[in-house]
Amino acid sequence: MPYDDSVPPARRARRPLLVAAALAALCLTAVTGCGGGPDGAETGAASPRPGGDAASPSAAPTPSASPSASASASPSASASEPLPRGPLTGRTVVIDPGHNPRNREHTKEINQQVDIGTGRKECDTTGTSTDAGYAEARFTLDVSHRLRELLRAQGARVVLTQDDDRPFGPCIDERARIGNEAKADAVVSVHADGSAVGNRGFHVILPAAVKGGGADTTKIVRSSADLGARIAGHFVRATGSAPSNYIGGGTGLDTRDDLGGLNLSTVPKVFVECGNMRDPQDAALLTRASWRQKAAQGMADGIADYLKG
Rank of each mutant, 00 (worst) to 15 (best):
N276P: 04
G51S: 12
L147N: 00
A25L: 13
D142R: 13
G309Y: 01
H145C: 03
C27G: 11
A41G: 10
L150T: 03
Q112G: 11
M1F: 13
R49Y: 10
I220C: 01
C34T: 02
N263A: 12
L147S: 01
A232H: 01
L286E: 00
H191A: 02
A156L: 04
W291F: 15
A192R: 01
T118G: 08
P268W: 00
A73I: 06
V204K: 02
A283L: 05
D165E: 14
T92D: 09
A225C: 07
A22V: 06
A41L: 12
G98A: 11
E122C: 04
P38A: 09
D257P: 02
K294G: 00
F271K: 04
T130R: 01
A69F: 11
D226L: 11
V31D: 06
G98Y: 01
R15S: 14
T89C: 00
R166T: 13
N100G: 06
T62R: 15
R292N: 10
G252F: 08
L23G: 06
D163L: 03
P280M: 05
S72K: 10
G155I: 02
A137T: 12
A25F: 05
G51R: 06
A59K: 09
P2T: 09
D185G: 08
S244T: 05
P48Y: 07
P8Y: 05
G249T: 04
G119H: 06
A22H: 04
V19T: 03
A73Y: 12
D124F: 09
A135N: 08
L83G: 07
L28P: 10
P82I: 10
V270F: 07
D53F: 04
P101G: 09
E149N: 05
S76N: 14
L88C: 03
R200C: 01
A225Y: 00
A46I: 13
T89L: 00
G169K: 03
A13Q: 14
R148K: 15
R85L: 13
E42R: 12
H145V: 00
G194Q: 02
W291E: 05
S56Q: 14
P50C: 04
N276V: 07
Q297A: 07
R15A: 15
R102H: 15
